[in-house]
Design a protein around this nucleic acid. Sequence first.
DNA 1: ACATTGACCTGGGAGC
DNA 2: TGCTCCCAGGTCAATG
Length: 273
Amino acid sequence: MPELPEVETTCCGIRPFIEDQRITKITVRNYKLRWPIPTNIADILTGQQIHTVKRRAKYLLFQCDTGTLIIHLGMSGSLRILDSTDNVEKHDHVDIVVDNGYVLRFTDPRRFGAILWTEQPIDQYKLLRHLGPEPLSIDFDADYLSQQSQSRKTSIKTFIMDGRIVVGVGNIYANEALFLAGIHPKTLTGKMSLNQCEKLVSAIKNVLTKAIAAGGTTLKDFRKSDGKPGYFAQQLHVYGRKEKPCSICGTVIQHYQASQRATYFCPNCQRHK
DNA sequence: ACATTGACCTGGGAGC
DNA sequence: TGCTCCCAGGTCAATG
Protein backbone atom coordinates (compact mmCIF):
# COMPACT_ATOMS: atom_id res chain seq x y z
CA MET A 1 0.00 0.00 0.00
CA PRO A 2 1.95 2.77 1.29
CA GLU A 3 4.23 4.57 -1.06
CA LEU A 4 6.54 7.39 -0.06
CA PRO A 5 3.83 9.96 0.80
CA GLU A 6 2.02 7.53 3.08
CA VAL A 7 5.23 6.54 4.86
CA GLU A 8 6.27 10.20 5.18
CA THR A 9 2.84 11.10 6.55
CA THR A 10 3.17 8.31 9.10
CA CYS A 11 6.70 9.34 10.03
CA CYS A 12 5.76 12.98 10.68
CA GLY A 13 2.61 11.93 12.50
CA ILE A 14 4.26 9.62 15.00
CA ARG A 15 7.51 11.55 15.56
CA PRO A 16 6.21 14.08 18.13
CA PHE A 17 4.89 11.25 20.33
CA ILE A 18 7.86 8.90 19.99
CA GLU A 19 11.11 10.78 19.57
CA ASP A 20 13.28 11.02 22.72
CA GLN A 21 10.99 8.60 24.54
CA ARG A 22 12.09 5.45 26.33
CA ILE A 23 10.46 2.13 25.47
CA THR A 24 8.70 0.69 28.51
CA LYS A 25 6.97 -2.32 26.97
CA ILE A 26 6.65 -4.24 23.71
CA THR A 27 3.83 -6.69 22.99
CA VAL A 28 4.06 -8.92 19.93
CA ARG A 29 0.86 -10.82 19.13
CA ASN A 30 2.04 -12.28 15.82
CA TYR A 31 5.69 -12.71 14.87
CA LYS A 32 4.93 -13.82 11.31
CA LEU A 33 5.37 -10.89 8.96
CA ARG A 34 7.31 -10.86 5.67
CA TRP A 35 10.27 -11.95 7.77
CA PRO A 36 9.82 -13.12 11.34
CA ILE A 37 10.07 -10.40 13.95
CA PRO A 38 13.23 -11.20 16.01
CA THR A 39 11.98 -13.30 18.91
CA ASN A 40 14.05 -11.32 21.40
CA ILE A 41 12.87 -7.89 20.19
CA ALA A 42 11.21 -7.03 23.51
CA ASP A 43 14.30 -8.00 25.49
CA ILE A 44 16.55 -5.94 23.24
CA LEU A 45 14.40 -2.83 23.10
CA THR A 46 12.78 -2.51 26.50
CA GLY A 47 14.51 0.33 28.35
CA GLN A 48 16.16 1.78 25.24
CA GLN A 49 15.59 5.38 24.23
CA ILE A 50 14.38 6.24 20.71
CA HIS A 51 16.61 9.13 19.66
CA THR A 52 15.25 9.82 16.16
CA VAL A 53 12.39 8.72 13.89
CA LYS A 54 13.30 8.96 10.21
CA ARG A 55 12.21 7.72 6.80
CA ARG A 56 14.45 6.25 4.11
CA ALA A 57 12.64 5.03 0.97
CA LYS A 58 9.55 3.28 2.40
CA TYR A 59 11.33 2.24 5.59
CA LEU A 60 10.74 3.88 8.96
CA LEU A 61 13.92 3.97 11.05
CA PHE A 62 13.97 4.34 14.82
CA GLN A 63 17.48 5.10 16.01
CA CYS A 64 17.84 3.62 19.50
CA ASP A 65 20.72 3.34 21.99
CA THR A 66 22.40 0.26 20.51
CA GLY A 67 20.94 -0.04 17.00
CA THR A 68 18.04 0.72 14.66
CA LEU A 69 14.49 -0.57 14.69
CA ILE A 70 13.27 -0.89 11.09
CA ILE A 71 9.58 -0.93 10.18
CA HIS A 72 8.16 -1.43 6.67
CA LEU A 73 4.41 -1.15 6.09
CA GLY A 74 4.25 -3.60 3.17
CA MET A 75 1.00 -3.41 1.22
CA SER A 76 -1.55 -3.00 3.99
CA GLY A 77 0.31 -1.84 7.07
CA SER A 78 -0.23 1.21 9.22
CA LEU A 79 1.15 2.67 12.45
CA ARG A 80 -1.10 4.57 14.81
CA ILE A 81 -0.60 6.49 18.04
CA LEU A 82 -3.06 5.40 20.74
CA ASP A 83 -3.38 6.39 24.36
CA SER A 84 -4.03 2.89 25.66
CA THR A 85 -3.68 -0.73 24.59
CA ASP A 86 -7.44 -1.31 24.72
CA ASN A 87 -9.60 -2.61 21.88
CA VAL A 88 -7.04 -4.85 20.25
CA GLU A 89 -8.33 -6.05 16.89
CA LYS A 90 -7.52 -8.97 14.67
CA HIS A 91 -4.58 -7.50 12.73
CA ASP A 92 -3.02 -5.41 15.51
CA HIS A 93 0.25 -7.37 15.60
CA VAL A 94 2.59 -5.21 17.69
CA ASP A 95 2.33 -2.53 20.40
CA ILE A 96 5.31 -0.42 21.45
CA VAL A 97 4.62 1.50 24.65
CA VAL A 98 6.77 4.52 25.51
CA ASP A 99 7.21 6.29 28.81
CA ASN A 100 4.91 9.24 28.05
CA GLY A 101 2.15 6.61 28.05
CA TYR A 102 1.41 6.59 24.32
CA VAL A 103 1.28 3.35 22.34
CA LEU A 104 2.63 2.90 18.81
CA ARG A 105 0.50 0.16 17.25
CA PHE A 106 1.43 -1.75 14.08
CA THR A 107 -1.55 -3.11 12.16
CA ASP A 108 -1.19 -5.13 8.94
CA PRO A 109 -3.90 -7.44 7.52
CA ARG A 110 -1.78 -8.95 4.74
CA ARG A 111 1.42 -9.20 6.81
CA PHE A 112 3.72 -8.15 3.97
CA GLY A 113 5.22 -5.62 6.34
CA ALA A 114 8.39 -6.11 8.37
CA ILE A 115 9.76 -5.25 11.81
CA LEU A 116 13.50 -5.80 12.07
CA TRP A 117 16.47 -4.82 14.20
CA THR A 118 20.05 -4.10 13.22
CA GLU A 119 23.13 -2.91 15.06
CA GLN A 120 24.92 -2.14 11.78
CA PRO A 121 25.29 1.41 10.45
CA ILE A 122 21.92 1.75 8.77
CA ASP A 123 23.03 2.49 5.19
CA GLN A 124 25.10 -0.69 5.22
CA TYR A 125 22.16 -2.83 6.26
CA LYS A 126 21.29 -5.40 3.60
CA LEU A 127 17.84 -4.06 2.73
CA LEU A 128 18.95 -0.42 2.42
CA ARG A 129 22.42 -0.78 0.94
CA HIS A 130 21.43 -0.81 -2.73
CA LEU A 131 18.74 1.84 -2.69
CA GLY A 132 18.82 4.77 -5.10
CA PRO A 133 18.38 8.45 -4.23
CA GLU A 134 15.37 9.97 -2.51
CA PRO A 135 13.03 11.41 -5.17
CA LEU A 136 12.65 14.73 -3.34
CA SER A 137 16.41 15.25 -2.96
CA ILE A 138 18.57 17.31 -5.32
CA ASP A 139 20.46 14.12 -6.23
CA PHE A 140 17.44 13.02 -8.21
CA ASP A 141 17.51 15.18 -11.32
CA ALA A 142 17.13 14.89 -15.10
CA ASP A 143 20.83 14.30 -15.74
CA TYR A 144 20.86 11.41 -13.28
CA LEU A 145 17.70 9.83 -14.70
CA SER A 146 18.91 10.26 -18.26
CA GLN A 147 22.30 8.74 -17.47
CA GLN A 148 20.78 5.74 -15.67
CA SER A 149 18.25 5.11 -18.42
CA GLN A 150 20.68 4.86 -21.33
CA SER A 151 21.98 1.34 -20.77
CA ARG A 152 18.76 -0.26 -19.57
CA LYS A 153 16.18 -2.14 -21.58
CA THR A 154 12.80 -1.89 -19.92
CA SER A 155 9.76 0.36 -19.88
CA ILE A 156 9.94 3.73 -18.19
CA LYS A 157 7.21 2.72 -15.77
CA THR A 158 9.08 -0.36 -14.53
CA PHE A 159 12.23 1.75 -14.38
CA ILE A 160 10.92 4.46 -12.06
CA MET A 161 9.43 1.80 -9.77
CA ASP A 162 12.88 0.20 -9.36
CA GLY A 163 14.24 1.19 -5.94
CA ARG A 164 17.82 0.96 -7.14
CA ILE A 165 17.08 3.86 -9.53
CA VAL A 166 14.88 5.99 -7.29
CA VAL A 167 13.06 5.05 -4.10
CA GLY A 168 9.51 5.59 -2.95
CA VAL A 169 7.67 5.56 -6.29
CA GLY A 170 5.10 2.77 -6.24
CA ASN A 171 2.32 1.87 -8.63
CA ILE A 172 -0.07 4.74 -7.91
CA TYR A 173 2.47 7.55 -8.19
CA ALA A 174 4.29 5.96 -11.15
CA ASN A 175 1.01 6.05 -13.09
CA GLU A 176 0.26 9.60 -11.97
CA ALA A 177 3.74 10.98 -12.66
CA LEU A 178 3.81 9.55 -16.19
CA PHE A 179 0.43 11.12 -16.86
CA LEU A 180 1.57 14.52 -15.57
CA ALA A 181 4.73 14.29 -17.68
CA GLY A 182 2.77 13.27 -20.81
CA ILE A 183 4.85 10.10 -21.25
CA HIS A 184 3.44 6.74 -22.36
CA PRO A 185 4.20 4.09 -19.71
CA LYS A 186 5.54 1.63 -22.32
CA THR A 187 8.18 4.06 -23.60
CA LEU A 188 11.56 2.31 -23.57
CA THR A 189 14.00 3.90 -21.13
CA GLY A 190 16.68 4.15 -23.78
CA LYS A 191 14.37 6.31 -25.92
CA MET A 192 13.81 8.94 -23.27
CA SER A 193 15.00 12.41 -24.32
CA LEU A 194 16.62 14.73 -21.79
CA ASN A 195 13.53 16.91 -22.08
CA GLN A 196 11.31 13.97 -21.18
CA CYS A 197 13.56 13.12 -18.25
CA GLU A 198 13.20 16.70 -17.03
CA LYS A 199 9.44 16.53 -17.27
CA LEU A 200 9.31 13.18 -15.51
CA VAL A 201 11.57 14.22 -12.64
CA SER A 202 9.45 17.34 -12.06
CA ALA A 203 6.24 15.31 -12.26
CA ILE A 204 7.50 12.79 -9.68
CA LYS A 205 8.58 15.52 -7.26
CA ASN A 206 5.34 17.38 -7.84
CA VAL A 207 2.93 14.49 -7.31
CA LEU A 208 4.77 13.20 -4.23
CA THR A 209 4.87 16.66 -2.64
CA LYS A 210 1.16 17.21 -3.24
CA ALA A 211 0.28 13.75 -1.94
CA ILE A 212 2.27 14.37 1.26
CA ALA A 213 0.38 17.65 1.72
CA ALA A 214 -2.90 15.73 1.41
CA GLY A 215 -1.83 13.12 3.98
CA GLY A 216 -1.28 10.38 1.38
CA THR A 217 -3.67 8.20 -0.61
CA THR A 218 -6.10 5.87 1.14
CA LEU A 219 -7.52 3.25 -1.20
CA LYS A 220 -8.46 0.85 1.54
CA ASP A 221 -6.21 0.10 4.49
CA PHE A 222 -3.95 3.08 4.88
CA ARG A 223 -4.49 5.19 7.99
CA LYS A 224 -2.55 8.18 9.18
CA SER A 225 -1.11 7.94 12.69
CA ASP A 226 -4.30 9.55 14.06
CA GLY A 227 -6.38 6.76 12.47
CA LYS A 228 -7.87 8.98 9.72
CA PRO A 229 -7.48 8.31 5.97
CA GLY A 230 -5.36 10.40 3.57
CA TYR A 231 -7.19 12.48 0.98
CA PHE A 232 -5.01 12.36 -2.14
CA ALA A 233 -7.26 9.76 -3.85
CA GLN A 234 -9.50 12.67 -4.88
CA GLN A 235 -6.66 14.14 -6.91
CA LEU A 236 -5.70 11.03 -8.88
CA HIS A 237 -5.88 11.59 -12.66
CA VAL A 238 -5.46 8.05 -13.99
CA TYR A 239 -4.88 5.45 -11.25
CA GLY A 240 -8.02 3.32 -10.80
CA ARG A 241 -9.90 5.33 -13.45
CA LYS A 242 -10.24 2.64 -16.14
CA GLU A 243 -12.82 3.64 -18.77
CA LYS A 244 -13.46 7.01 -17.18
CA PRO A 245 -12.82 10.22 -19.11
CA CYS A 246 -9.43 11.92 -18.82
CA SER A 247 -9.78 14.99 -16.60
CA ILE A 248 -7.79 17.05 -19.12
CA CYS A 249 -9.05 15.99 -22.56
CA GLY A 250 -12.00 13.66 -21.99
CA THR A 251 -10.43 10.68 -23.79
CA VAL A 252 -11.24 7.32 -22.17
CA ILE A 253 -8.50 6.16 -19.79
CA GLN A 254 -6.89 2.90 -20.97
CA HIS A 255 -5.70 0.06 -18.77
CA TYR A 256 -3.37 -2.93 -19.09
CA GLN A 257 -1.37 -5.29 -16.88
CA ALA A 258 2.41 -5.00 -16.87
CA SER A 259 4.24 -7.57 -14.74
CA GLN A 260 1.17 -8.04 -12.55
CA ARG A 261 0.73 -4.30 -11.98
CA ALA A 262 -2.28 -2.36 -13.22
CA THR A 263 -1.19 0.44 -15.53
CA TYR A 264 -3.48 3.34 -16.48
CA PHE A 265 -2.88 6.06 -19.03
CA CYS A 266 -4.59 8.56 -21.31
CA PRO A 267 -3.87 7.58 -24.93
CA ASN A 268 -4.22 11.20 -26.02
CA CYS A 269 -2.17 12.96 -23.33
CA GLN A 270 0.50 10.22 -23.25
CA ARG A 271 1.46 9.48 -26.86
CA HIS A 272 4.29 7.21 -27.90
CA LYS A 273 7.06 9.31 -29.39
C1' DA B 1 24.63 -7.98 -15.27
C1' DC B 2 20.08 -7.53 -16.32
C1' DA B 3 15.02 -8.72 -16.97
C1' DT B 4 11.09 -11.47 -15.66
C1' DT B 5 8.33 -14.37 -12.55
C1' DG B 6 6.88 -16.47 -8.24
C1' DA B 7 6.17 -16.04 -3.59
C1' DC B 8 4.56 -14.21 0.67
C1' DC B 9 -0.85 -13.07 2.97
C1' DT B 10 -5.78 -11.52 3.84
C1' DG B 11 -10.11 -9.47 2.54
C1' DG B 12 -13.38 -7.51 -0.55
C1' DG B 13 -16.04 -7.43 -4.65
C1' DA B 14 -17.78 -9.56 -8.96
C1' DG B 15 -20.04 -13.23 -11.02
C1' DC B 16 -22.54 -17.51 -10.93
C1' DT C 1 -26.73 -16.79 0.73
C1' DG C 2 -22.67 -18.96 -0.45
C1' DC C 3 -19.02 -20.46 -3.32
C1' DT C 4 -15.05 -19.45 -6.48
C1' DC C 5 -12.12 -16.47 -8.74
C1' DC C 6 -9.61 -12.29 -9.24
C1' DC C 7 -7.50 -8.22 -7.59
C1' DA C 8 -4.91 -5.04 -4.37
C1' DG C 9 -0.52 0.19 -2.29
C1' DG C 10 5.72 -3.96 -2.10
C1' DT C 11 9.86 -6.16 -3.07
C1' DC C 12 13.03 -10.06 -2.20
C1' DA C 13 14.67 -14.45 -4.09
C1' DA C 14 14.99 -17.51 -7.65
C1' DT C 15 15.19 -18.26 -12.52
C1' DG C 16 16.42 -17.57 -17.32
